[in-house]
Design a protein around this nucleic acid. Structure first.
Length: 372
DNA sequence: AAGACGTGGGC
DNA sequence: TGCCCAAGTCT
């Protein structure tokens, strides 16, 4: 059994590294001010943490600014139209986060007087806030000594202690270790420092161990097998589903849209009419789901990868002279298409049928299919 | 408690 | 090209 680094030693080295190498991020109060007692705005911390769930910093930045511009305070978000929130979130993915974000804002505004709870338990009771986010907000915005454990920290800890237990079973052990390392003085900086270390030095591939402030005490580094940690379960294959999408346009350029169910995949988002997405690709695509009678032209296919399946969508286009809406959809003018709550897969389908629909030309890079 | 739940970027 | 990955939560 090798010697592991002491919690206090690791904690001090990490904070010293963070003081010199921290990232400057829009939602963050950097060390000099943080050490002077300035804490970040809980609304900003919460908003950024929810956006950052399973999402990269680069992807989050523009959305963070857009949300703050649209809704400067949590009370404004609480009073907003949910549809507007979904439009603003479109493209970020994991849309349940947006639905829960809105619900959480309403609870904070209505039940907490617009002030976020300052305890881990109080925060965790809110929609969309789980173990990680509750601890992060408590530590960063309220200076609570909470053990923050996310993917970055898991990677750092698993290598530091060379933990052979695979995730997620190893989390109990990891949480305990982070708990003893978290300093009472600067819990927020420590949490952010661990995440910065994981994001910039202790990376999944080819970590820069030579630059790591904890390398001397890192058991995996000493053994030379740091890339083998953390141990993860084997992932399942991603099945293929197929379906059809129907892009109906009007003479004036308007496109026919409808709203998806509130729950489940892309819940509460906007779509073009289409078939269900089924597991098999034989049997042909039925055109029963087309919203209007008309001369439907085959535009080929698009592919889109979701977390648990891949979708191959046959896209059809028709110009229809429809004076009345069928079902529950509406005609959206071409000019305002971009601002709708359209998930990326739907923008791809529309761009396939109407190449000029979006100004910022989403390059249909995944459109291997040609009309047959 | 394992599966559902998006997207874009890196290699 | 295809696989892996990114500050998780909910059921």
């Amino acid at each position: 059994m090798q010697q592991t680094i002491s919690a206090r030693d690791a904690s001090q080295k990490l904070l010293a590294w963070y003081d010199r190498h921290h990232r400057d991020l829009p939602w963050r109060v950097s060390p000099p001010m943080a050490k002077a007692g300035v804490t970040a705005d809980p609304y900003h911390v919460w908003l950024s943490e929810v956006m950052l769930q399973q999402t990269t910093v680069q992807a989050v930045k523009p959305y963070f600014h857009k949300f703050l511009s649209l809704w400067p305070r949590v009370s404004n978000l609480a009073a907003a139209d949910t549809e507007e929130v979904m439009k603003a979130w479109a493209g970020l993915g994991y849309y349940a986060r947006a639905r829960n974000l809105k619900k959480c804002a309403e609870v904070v505004a209505r039940e907490h007087g617009g002030i976020f709870p300052d305890s881990e338990d109080g925060l965790k009771a809110l929609p969309g806030i789980g173990d990680y986010t509750a601890a992060a907000i408590a530590a960063i915005a309220f200076n609570r000594r909470s053990a923050v454990l996310d993917g970055n920290v898991e990677r750092v800890i698993s290598r530091l202690d060379r933990i052979e237990t695979p995730l997620p079973a190893a989390r109990t052990q990891m949480r305990a270790r982070v708990g003893e390392m978290t300093p009472a003085g600067r819990p927020g900086d420590f949490a952010q420092g661990m995440m910065d270390l994981g994001a910039t030095i202790c990376t999944p591939k080819r970590p820069a161990c030579a630059l790591c402030p904890l390398n001397h005490g890192c058991l995996a580094f000493r053994a030379g097998d740091q890339e083998d940690f953390p141990k993860k379960p084997v992932k399942k294959a991603r099945p293929l589903r197929v379906g059809a999408a129907f892009v109906a346009s009007r003479a004036d350029g308007a496109v026919y849209l409808r709203k998806r169910a509130e729950d489940g995949l892309l819940g509460g988002m906007t779509e073009v009419p289409g078939t269900a997405w089924t597991a098999r690709k034989d049997g042909g695509i039925t055109l029963d789901a087309r919203p209007f009678e008309g001369d439907w032209e085959d535009c080929g296919t698009i592919s889109h990868v979701f977390t648990h399946f891949e979708l191959r969508l046959s896209v059809y286009r028709a110009e229809v002279c429809a004076r009345n809406d069928s079902a529950n959809g509406w005609w959206e003018p071409l000019a305002s298409l971009e601002a709708q709550a359209l998930p990326t897969v739907m923008k791809k389908a529309i761009a396939r049928a109407l190449p000029h629909a979006f100004s910022s030309a989403i390059s249909p890079s995944v459109n291997e299919g040609t009309p047959e």
